[in-house]
Design a protein around this nucleic acid. Sequence first.
DNA 1: CACGATTGGCTACGTCTAATAGCTTTTTAG
DNA 2: CTAAAAAGCTATTAGACGTAGCCAATCGTG
Lengths: 188, 188
Amino acid sequence: MPRAGLSEDRVVEEAEQLADEGRPVTLAALALRLGVQAPSLYKHVAGADALQQLVATRAKNELADVLARATVGKARADAVDALARAYREWAIAHPGRYATTLRAPRMDDAAEVAASNRAVQVTFDALAGYGLEGDDAIDATRFIRSTLHGFVTLKAAGAFELPDLDRSFARMVAALQQSLANWNAVTI
Amino acid sequence: MPRAGLSEDRVVEEAEQLADEGRPVTLAALALRLGVQAPSLYKHVAGADALQQLVATRAKNELADVLARATVGKARADAVDALARAYREWAIAHPGRYATTLRAPRMDDAAEVAASNRAVQVTFDALAGYGLEGDDAIDATRFIRSTLHGFVTLKAAGAFELPDLDRSFARMVAALQQSLANWNAVTI
DNA sequence: CACGATTGGCTACGTCTAATAGCTTTTTAG
DNA sequence: CTAAAAAGCTATTAGACGTAGCCAATCGTG
């Protein structure tokens, strides 16, 4: 029996493709694509759950990278705009992987926890130009994440039925920028 | 064999409970709770998918009712505040059912489509006091939905790691109110 | 009231997925 | 060159969904 030359990375990559194509990521489907019998996959990943975990961790890291690249050298409104667009683009281009980033990180998986924190940190950093600190920065970061995440997932779920989504998104980003510029005045 | 006295409603209700308890909603688990063998459930619902569909439709209607009750007789900032709190409370109190409301409605299921539209309509109506019309109202509705949905799902996913969530939420609502009050000035 | 039709249970079975055990072959290390 | 590790395989189990078809309970109508 000639070897297929698999590796953990190869298996995970194929799973990512499968997910982004919108197909169910089953070990059987994965094995078929890789030209191998399903049980052979266990030589490379510990099981279906572990595979999900690996895909999620890689996706979170990639999203963090994309956001970091998009916002480097920008500040305030420019940074928010770049962050929002990059976030939306990546999520829409990689729906399967994006979906995995939404799961709560398993606290016993240091790599996944770290990946989750990276993405949050990038958003946090992008707000540096606004001079927000402490609670202000925490609240603002949560506001941005909620809004972007909500828009993208509602869109992905097909919950928006009317056209003009681009305009709505742009307007939402503008509202975010305005709120952040006056964040100190936003009190409870 | 004595009859168990099941009905579609009874089965769906038990599925809702199961979901809100965080347990996987399998036909086997459902049958066990109802004191019946799994295949018997097919006399009342068409299958696992159809069951999900029924739960989702009922959940969407219930959420729409809750939001409508919360906002009746209120306007502008009061309406937004009531809407936001009611949305969050219901979602957190009924995590399993809330999760089903996120799926895109199946376009071939008129009942589910109608239920989805009702929830959007309530949000839309709550903005009436701001005098927003046409595109303005559409954009604002999407903004609100995105923000609330994003916050709730990120919270449900355990994505927020730090405390002070209530303060962050209140602040977010305040930012929403401010943005809506100045919505005309929020241009792209 | 009786009896046929409908309804609501059941058992048995088939398919799919995940997972484990244990075997064989290939590759690699010493 | 050989022994160990790695990477395939087959076979099997367990659990989920779903279908077929049987039989008892209930209902409706003459």
